[in-house]
Write a protein that binds this DNA or RNA. Sequence first.
DNA 1: ATTAAATAGTTGCAATTGCAACAATAACAC
DNA 2: GTGTTATTGTTGCAATTGCAACTATTTAAT
Lengths: 155, 155
Amino acid sequence: MMKKINEIKIKSWISLIRTQQFLLEQVESDLKRAGLPTLAWYDVLLELTRVPDGRLRLNEIGTRILLEKSNLTRLIDRLEKDGLLEREVCDSDRRGAYAVITTKGRSLQKRMWPIYAIAIENHFASKLTLEEAEMFIGLLQKIDKTVPKERLMNL
Amino acid sequence: MMKKINEIKIKSWISLIRTQQFLLEQVESDLKRAGLPTLAWYDVLLELTRVPDGRLRLNEIGTRILLEKSNLTRLIDRLEKDGLLEREVCDSDRRGAYAVITTKGRSLQKRMWPIYAIAIENHFASKLTLEEAEMFIGLLQKIDKTVPKERLMNL
DNA sequence: ATTAAATAGTTGCAATTGCAACAATAACAC
DNA sequence: GTGTTATTGTTGCAATTGCAACTATTTAAT
């Protein structure tokens, strides 16, 4: 029943945790150094720019960026207070709310991207060949089926 | 100068972030469901059990588990309050402090491991073959040079 | 030795997270 | 329809994090 877990696999688990933590620190730190908000903000803005009207149900944002609903509520609060998006009531489902990105929000997203991209390049992408990156995606997809197989970045 | 970052690589970055966040949630949730403390606690306990006297400088713990010093201070506070370890003054460097694991601490670590191991197996290890796990480690090492090449788990 | 810099750890405070409870609305069972 | 259950989003509260300032001690420089 309880078969002994393989040591190599444990090592790969630990490496994963560690590496990811390490990378995230680097990247967040680069953003901060550039006077920009955190990745969480970027994630919300990006999801909104990806979608036709720049409008998404909070709900939907939550599942896309893997965030608890209560945390999402308050993340959206902060972005709204900063004028990066606006809440809008949802007519089809009156419990719900939309977040709609503003011009200011779009412009921040555009401003953040190059910094973010450079950080990804420096701390991550430059360490891998193209083939390795593809291999990496393949492995991650096996581990987490929710990793998108096709969807691409815009910008 | 600013060469365009490759799209595949970006995709692999995003997959990494997402997968890791997802996995960590699963595992933390399993621990919680079993009435056990978080991974952060486990990490400290594990580092302490790995080492001869069950004694480490806070300092040292901090670099091993990638934690800010102020957060470490308070994490150690909590473990100490729970009787899992004790602080001890350091004679050779009087600024410093040791954390020394207690019997209770060791026993908690032993109690947590099986649950943690099962979680790793279910959410991660079972999705990879041995060869894939090895490939995975290889890639992670390229990305983060601080990933240990040799060190093994005890237990 | 004396001063200047670096390091170890702690503390205060503001920001963020996680959890449980809650209100409003929607979906379902009969 | 009516009552039950599920879902959406918000709120209060406690726990955790990140940051900057601070103390004490060590290291290095002259």
